[in-house]
Simulated assay, not measured.
Amino acid sequence: MKKKVALITGVSSGIGRATAELLARKGYQVFGGVRTPEKAHAINGVTLVQIDVRDEASIKAGVESVLQQAGRIDVLINNAGYSIVGAVEETSPEEAQALFDTNLFGVLRMSRAVLPAMRAQGSGRIVNLSSVLGFLPAPFMGLYAATKHAVEGLSESLDHEVRNFGIRVILIQPSFTRTGLDTNAAPTAERIPAYVDQFQRTVAAVTATIKAAPEPENVAGRILQAIEAPYRMRHPGDRKAALLAKLRRFMPAGPVDKSLRKEFALS
């Protein structure tokens, strides 16, 4: 039996790297997308491919390389992304556009690149990394949350469009995870004094949460389960994410709002 072929973007570190390592150990033929392969650390059992999700030509060349080597792509995992921290008022349109270019349009470009091959083979899974911030607000990470809300809408719509071709779309929704994405997010260039005190309190609360957060390997395990289990669209990345999803769905808006303000140390 031939190995299933998985292509994962953003495998240099964090969830992407942990997922690549796990799938390789589980017998998948894994290709890992990185922007600069010559600078990336090798991953046992994983073939690194140059892919910059912001660049159409890079994506086209990378996907063609995978298809030439493996003949098919069974699973695409759209993991590449980054975050920015700052109040919405402090976030410039240029910063917001750059964030969307990676976190949303990167998903769009990659999906468009693999769908012809998946349609031709009559099967496939597209796994998009969302977040609990895809269904919850995120003070001082509003634009990041906006990209993940957009990924949720794009994914659900795409799933309806491609289902008849044997292709399904999966959303993974982690809460805060101990990765570079959560700990090394870039600040907005502008700082408005009126927000400084609250910003510092919120960052301190989030930093404390991250220290007790799951490792990326936990999320990688959820991704593997989502690929191999009977199909379901949304998969919380950890127990906290599952709890938050239930609270958002079943609790009245008032208590949820109050709980979130406490979580983010909002006055």
Rank of each mutant, 00 (worst) to 15 (best):
K2Y: 06
K4Q: 09
V5G: 04
V5H: 06
L7I: 09
I8H: 05
S12I: 08
S13E: 12
G16H: 02
A24P: 13
R25V: 14
G32T: 09
G33K: 06
I43F: 01
N44K: 11
G45I: 03
T47K: 10
L48I: 00
I51H: 05
R54H: 10
D55Y: 00
K60F: 04
K60G: 02
V63T: 03
V63I: 12
Q68V: 02
G71F: 01
I73Y: 01
V75L: 05
L76H: 01
G81Q: 03
Y82F: 14
I84V: 12
G86R: 02
V88S: 14
S92G: 09
E95Q: 12
L99F: 04
L104T: 04
F105Q: 03
G106W: 03
V107I: 02
L108K: 02
S111Y: 08
S111M: 01
R112D: 07
P116H: 11
M118D: 02
Q121P: 01
I126T: 05
V127Y: 02
G134F: 03
G134A: 10
L136V: 09
L136P: 08
P139E: 03
P139R: 10
F140C: 08
M141S: 11
G142T: 03
L143A: 13
E152G: 04
L154D: 07
L158K: 02
L158G: 10
D159A: 06
N164R: 13
R168G: 10
V169W: 02
L171F: 08
S175W: 15
R178I: 13
G180M: 11
G180F: 10
L181Q: 08
N184K: 15
A186D: 12
T188D: 10
A189L: 14
E190N: 12
E190L: 13
I192C: 04
A194Y: 08
Y195V: 02
V196T: 15
D197G: 11
A208D: 14
P214F: 14
E215Q: 15
N218L: 14
N218D: 14
R222H: 15
L224A: 11
E228V: 09
P230V: 09
R234L: 04
P236W: 11
D238M: 06
D238H: 08
R249H: 10
R249V: 08
P255K: 03
V256W: 01
R261P: 14
R261F: 04
K262Q: 15
E263K: 15
F264A: 06
